[in-house]
Write a protein that binds this DNA or RNA. Structure first.
Length: 560
RNA sequence: UGGGGCGUAGCCAAGCGGAAAGGCACGGGGUUUUGGUCCCCGGAUACAGAGGUUCGAAUCCUCUCGCCCCAGCCA
């Protein structure tokens, strides 16, 4: 953990700190994470999760998990399962504090009756279209519903009949009687209850009227005794409405605090658009390693620690912003550099024969498992006459700054020997380099020459006869544009998908120690990046995902 | 003057009247059997702009400009 993780201050933490100091709410801190069970969590949600659970932890309080399930036609239990799984994976626990807004349907109904009795709510027979047409515009006030002044008794009677199923969907709603001329559209007699003859994933067919989110959310927080209701910026102008309900109802008043949600460049965070990518098969599923979903990031090899460090570093404020994904990638590298075991793997193999090496000899070379962690120990890697090296590590006609292998040049094979390239074999028809012939210096065993001569490069390698075959999937940004929604004339945001966001390599050669590795195994392939075993792996096929590449100065020079 | 927010380096972001933290990215140098890691060094005469208050302002006041959100019986 970076040292800033504990001290990182932000305006919400300051507010809470002050409240605790002033003994507001008896000095208690109670938060909640309120997802709607209608999709998968992404890293933007993780920001909210980390804040809500994190503040509770930091201030000795509690955090509830509450599903805001007020819309039976869109929600389902299968989503709730995945959401709980992702929150636990991030490292948070709600113990026995799992709630559903639907648990409060009875209470909410009583609240509605209460407001009717206070003359603060009425049943409106206008259709959805009519309500919209009488709401006014951003600059002009709305006009009162003709049903606005019904008697309390009539409202009570009608609302009860709405509940008993007497009316069709959409024929009537219960509305709050506030102010059709308010500059805040949310206050123009908002709908509290709508008729929905639909089966709810928890309450079944008990109800045929359902409260709207606006009539549910604030009171749910109130019922749970939440002290700090943290939510995103777009709910800022709903706050006056939530406050209004709570004041009319005379119930506990949580303090709502809004923050700017997370945006990352080269990807999208819209649930609707992510769904579109999945359903139209632009990606392989919600857990495709290119997705910003938590299950996607997990499959890609991102860890809870890396994600949480990242979220701590970017802070929280009210300014709309777009964070560079390089920051997220940095956090994974930072963590894994310290802990990931190092292994050698050749992704694009080029055959190398050491002409002066004995035909049948195999030597076991000692390799360090992690130079950042001596306790990780060492392992043996077999070396023999025929090897594979990375195609990119050889150039027949190298430019000035290239200091890897080239004709006549000597380099080091990591933990093995110095080798010198003596001959280049090419395919006669294509001209492609297919094999290199080298000689080795037996005195350089282990990687250093007793005469003290230096080489400019150290290459990773794998012994051909001992190598394991594997598939490796390389990932890059899902969208080539920083802002995927930036559309050119006649194009659509999906045209911005990076065509090479996934590159599959089928002929990779791994060092034999990787033989029995299983799903989730994580390591660094030296000089290349961090990789993890994908769940597509099985007994006869190993599949690795590249989580993130190492920083690569040579690559950067070439791109200049 | 519809309402509500926000404007500090390329990207995030501290700062709360005493005089610009930190991270990422970027550039330079050193170490190095990963062109990795690590270690140095480099950046805003300046905080959207203009006025004003003050001994002193990114921080207070005024005006201007720019960006975001709101017209679902979605959340």
């Amino acid at each position: 953990m970076p040292s800033d993780s504990v001290t990182a201050s932000n305006f919400i933490r300051e507010i809470i700190k002050d409240d605790v100091k002033n003994n507001k709410n008896d000095g208690k801190v109670y938060t909640r994470f309120p997802p709607e069970p209608n999709g998968y969590l992404h890293i933007g949600h993780a920001k909210s999760i980390c804040m809500n659970f994190g503040f509770a932890e930091d201030f000795n309080g509690l955090c509830n998990l509450r599903f805001d399930d007020t819309n039976p036609v869109k929600e389902g239990a299968e989503y709730a399962e995945s959401i709980m799984n992702d929150i636990r994976w991030l490292g948070f626990e709600w113990e026995d504090r799992l709630f559903y807004a639907s648990d409060y349907f009875d209470k909410l109904y009583e609240f509605a009756i209460d407001l009717i009795k206070k003359g603060k709510a009425y049943v409106c027979d206008l259709s959805a279209d009519e309500i919209r047409n009488t709401r006014g515009t951003l600059k002009e006030p709305g006009i009162n519903s003709p049903y606005r002044d019904r008697s309390i008794d009539e409202n009570l009677d009608l609302f009860k009949r709405m509940r008993s199923g007497e009316f069709e969907n959409g024929t009537r709603v219960l509305r709050a009687k506030i102010d059709m001329a308010s500059g805040n559209l949310n206050m123009r007699d908002p709908v509290m209850y709508r008729i929905l003859h639909a089966t709810h994933h928890r309450s079944g067919d008990k109800w045929c009227i359902y409260p709207t989110y606006d009539f549910t959310h604030g009171q749910s927080d109130s019922i749970e005794g939440i002290t700090h209701s943290i939510c995103s910026l777009e709910f800022e102008d709903h706050r006056p409405l939530y406050d209004w309900y709570i004041e009319q109802l005379e119930i506990h008043h949580p303090q709502q605090i809004e923050f700017a949600r997370l945006n990352l460049n080269h990807t999208i965070m819209s649930k609707r658009k992510l769904r579109e990518l999945v359903e139209e098969r632009y990606v392989d599923g919600w857990d495709d390693p290119r997705m910003p979903t938590l299950c996607g990031l997990r499959r890609r090899g991102f860890t809870p620690t890396a994600i949480r460090n990242f979220l701590t570093r970017i802070g929280v404020a009210k300014r709309n912003s777009v964070v560079d994904v390089a920051m997220l990638e940095h956090c994974l590298r930072e963590e894994q550099n310290k802990s990931a075991p190092r292994r050698m793997a050749v992704l694009n193999p080029l055959k190398v024969v050491i002409d002066n090496y004995p035909d049948d000899l195999t030597e076991e070379m000692e390799a360090v498992n992690n130079p950042e962690d001596a306790s990780a120990g060492i392992r043996k890697v077999p070396f023999s006459k025929t090897l594979y090296i990375e195609r990119d590590d050889f150039m027949e006609d190298p430019p000035k700054k290239f200091y890897r292998l080239a004709p006549g040049r000597e380099v080091r094979l990591r933990y093995a020997y110095f080798i010198k390239c003596e001959d280049v074999i090419k395919d006669e028809t294509t001209g492609e380099v297919i094999e290199l012939h080298c000689t080795y210096d037996p005195a350089s065993r282990g990687g250093n020459s007793p005469d003290g001569r230096k080489v400019k490069a150290t290459l990773h390698w794998v012994s051909a006869e001992h190598a394991i075959d594997a598939e490796v999937r390389l990932y890059d940004h899902l969208f080539s544009k920083e802002d995927p929604l930036e559309e050119e004339q006649g194009s659509n945001w999906k045209d911005n998908i990076n065509q090479s966001s996934r590159v599959i390599l089928n002929t990779c050669k791994l060092e034999p120690s990787l033989k029995d590795v299983s799903v989730g195994y994580f390591c660094q392939f030296e000089r290349q990046g961090y990789f993890c075993v994908d769940l597509d792996s099985n007994a006869n096929k190993l599949v690795f995902n590249r989580s993130v590449g190492l920083k690569d100065e040579w690559l950067r020079m070439q791109n200049k």
